[in-house]
Structures are given as C-alpha cells and as structure tokens.
Nucleic acid binder design. Structure first.
Lengths: 214, 214
DNA sequence: CGTCTCATGTTCAATGTTGAACACTCGGCA
DNA sequence: TGCCGAGTGTTCAACATTGAACATGAGACG
C-alpha cells in the first residue's frame, strides 16, 4: 500500500477510535477484513503512526497502563484538516489500475459530511468521463498497437463504465439521505459478537489517563 | 508499484528488447504510455535491474560505447523461467483492488505461448467465480455492516462481473487464434513515427560487442 | 570556436514497506 | 509452584521506491 493510502487509512482509523494504540487498530482492521484489500502489515501501522505524529497530524500519549507503557494516539486539528484534504483527493483521483485510494476513502465515508461526499463523487464522475473521452478520441491512437493492447483498452473501458454506473446510483442515494454519513445515527445493528465493547472500555480508561496527565 | 510487478515488467521488457540499457527501457515504457498505469520512475528501473541481476535472472554487460561505459542487460535462462512463473502467478492471482499485476501481465502477453495464456485465463476465471461465491454466501456476512460497506460490496461485484465477461470474450479469442502470441507474426503495422528503429541499431551494435568480449 | 541546450545514462540519500521476531502479561493446569 | 500457550504491543534490519540531481556528449547557433 502506498504511503498516502496508508496515512489516509490510519488517520481515519484514529479519528474513529481515538484514543487508540497500534495493536487495537491492527485488530480492528483485521476484523473489518480490511487486510483482504488494503495490505497493511503491523510494521506499516507503527511506522505510519510515527510519520503522522511527526507531521503533527496525530498526538502520541505514552501512558502507563498497569506496569506497562502504551503508545496511544489522538488526532490533532491539523490531522482533521489533512484527513479532509486527503479524502477528497483520494475520491477525485481516477486511476483504474490503482483503485486502492478510492476504496480506502469509501470505507471511511462515514467520517465525511453529506454535501462533501456528494461534491467529491460529482467531481470523480467528471474525471471518469474525461478519461473515457481521452481514450476514445485521444492522441493515444490505439490504431497502431498490437491487438492485445486494444483488448486491454476494452477492459479499461468496461471497468470505467461499471464504476460510473455505481457512482451515479450511489450519488443518488447520498442525495436521498441514505447511507450513514458524518454525525448521523446508525441505521444498522452491529453483530452480537462484535469485540468493539472491549475497546470502548479501554478507550474510556485512556481518556481518563490523558485528562489526568495533560 | 510493488516489487513483484516491477520485476515482471522489467524482466519482460528486457526479454523483448535485449540487449538493452536502463534508459532505453525507460523511454520505451514512456512511449507505450505504460507510465500512465504502471508508475515506474527512473530509480526503480535501475534498482530493479540490479536486483534481477543479483538473482541471476539478468546478466549485466558493461560495454564501452564510444568513450562511455554503458550497462547493458540480457535475460538468462533462469530469467526466462522466472518470467514464466511470475507471469502465471500474476494472471491467476485475483485482487480486484490491486489489479496492476494482472494488467502488467496482459501487456506482456506477447511473450507467452498460446496454450499457456488459455490455461492461465481459465484458472483466473475460476478464481473470480470462487471469490464472487465467497462474497455472496460467505462468512463475511455483510448483513451487520454499515450501509456504505454493502454499497462497496456491490461495486466489487460489478467490477468482478465486468472482468469476468472480458475474460470469457478474450479467452474465446485466444482459443480462436486471434491476438499475437509468442512466436507469431504481427498482424498490425507500427506507427510510422515509431522510434523503435533507432533502438534496433543500438541493439545490433550491443550484440556485436557482447559477442566480441564474451 | 565557445557556450547553450537538449538527450542520454545513471546515482543517491531520504523515505517507506515488510513481516519475522521480540518482550511482556495472564490464565490454565499438572 | 512452575511451566505452557495464547494474546498484546512493539521493534528492527533488510529491502524497495522515489525523483531530484548529477555527469557526459552531441548538435545548434551566433
């Protein structure tokens, strides 16, 4: 996973679960099956958190939990700004062969206000149309290319078309007030065996400790 | 671009153009517009060639071209084996959100015999069907997930379906003897402004020099 | 001829990624 | 009591990627 996508995912995860430590993020991502599509190894999580801290987008609190020291992270205001910027960029950047950034952003849609989602999706739609148009009429004349290159172009067109249709449908749903976006009540029930409540307990404890120590 | 895909692309490029130097590969990839989808920087080319050489998959010849020393590469027999293995793996591995390996392999289809292409495409088709089946009936029950996660799953299904249809069509074409695969005469005419002939001259010179010096 | 620019061919320090391995705690169990 | 195994939380050296910058030569132009 490229640096930008990793940072987007980590920053978003911290914003959802803060205050949170590296292992908790790892476990949560595993439980979402995020590992299936975003390939995040333990090492990337810790180094990504360190990078975000160095940039001032996260704050690191070294807490003593029992006898053991734990590195717990919270997002700074600069982190919230950076997240908003990176999210928009990820949605508006069309690269059919590296769709990871877009899908990472989709997974974090719940952190973004409804109008922003609608605007960004609209922009992506234009970008896709521009790309398709460029292919069809463009200077990259596929005429003088081997036949398998033309076949690849057909596949790309098909993928673009599929994504376009999904975007149109989903944009309509966003405008209709469906999907659960920022600050809205969830319309769904988590699984009964969700391990989330364990984390909630830890978070409460971390919050107190941070408040106590500044 | 991940290490594996870079190696596949470089090894394939060397097999097509050998004997060849790093700059020529760079320029050729640019002229294919490969840079648009595979993100290959000059640095990656040179370090990738060095890695492949260290693995014994390429051989490096330091030639004196005029007054200047040039690093020119050829593929070894081990390199051909490695290419065949990596190509199959790239085609048979389905990861809808990281399709770069597959598309890199498609671009290098011309280096692979027809039956191997047909077999690999068939295997990929099964892998896609297995993936779709797992999503639909699988344990990853999307039931207890936020609505946007269900929407993402819809997109994935659509993309899988699109790719599946393309694969079926293309597999039929491969079986019908279309597309230009290994060892067959090209059915297309390159552009008249193709810079390829310059490289052909250099290659001839490199070949002689290698023969002369062993 | 000088020198300017462009094309050629490559290197390198900074940065990021990988995943195995480390260190520690806790509960069970003989 | 003492040992084992599983879970928690993190580190690290090896490797890969990045793209700006370097070094050199060939041709254009005054």
């Amino acid at each position: 996973m490229a640096a930008t996508e990793t940072r987007l995912l980590l920053l978003g995860s911290v914003m959802i679960f803060e205050p949170v430590n590296g292992y908790q993020i790892r476990r949560e991502l595993l439980s979402w099956n995020v590992q299936e599509w975003a390939h995040v190894n333990p090492g990337s999580i810790y180094s990504g958190l360190a990078t975000l801290t160095a940039r001032g987008e996260l704050e690191r609190h070294d807490l003593l939990d029992g006898t053991r020291s734990v590195a717990v992270y919270t997002a700074t205001p600069a982190g919230h700004d950076a997240f908003a910027r990176m999210w928009r960029t990820a949605v508006e950047t069309v690269d059919l062969l590296s769709p990871l950034g877009f899908h990472t952003a989709l997974a974090l849609m719940g952190l973004v206000p409804r109008e922003v989602v609608a605007d960004a999706f609209t922009a992506r739609l234009s970008a896709i149309d521009a790309g398709v148009h460029r292919q069809v009429g463009g200077p990259t004349a596929v005429e003088h290319s081997p036949p398998h290159v033309r076949a690849m172009a057909d596949l790309w067109m098909g993928l673009a078309q599929t994504e376009r249709e999904w975007l149109v449908t989903t944009l309509r749903r966003v405008r209709a007030g469906e999907l659960d976006l920022l600050g809205e009540q969830p319309s769904w029930a988590p699984r009964s065996d969700d391990p989330g409540w364990e984390m909630a307990r830890d978070r409460a404890r971390y919050l107190q400790m941070i408040a106590a120590r500044g």
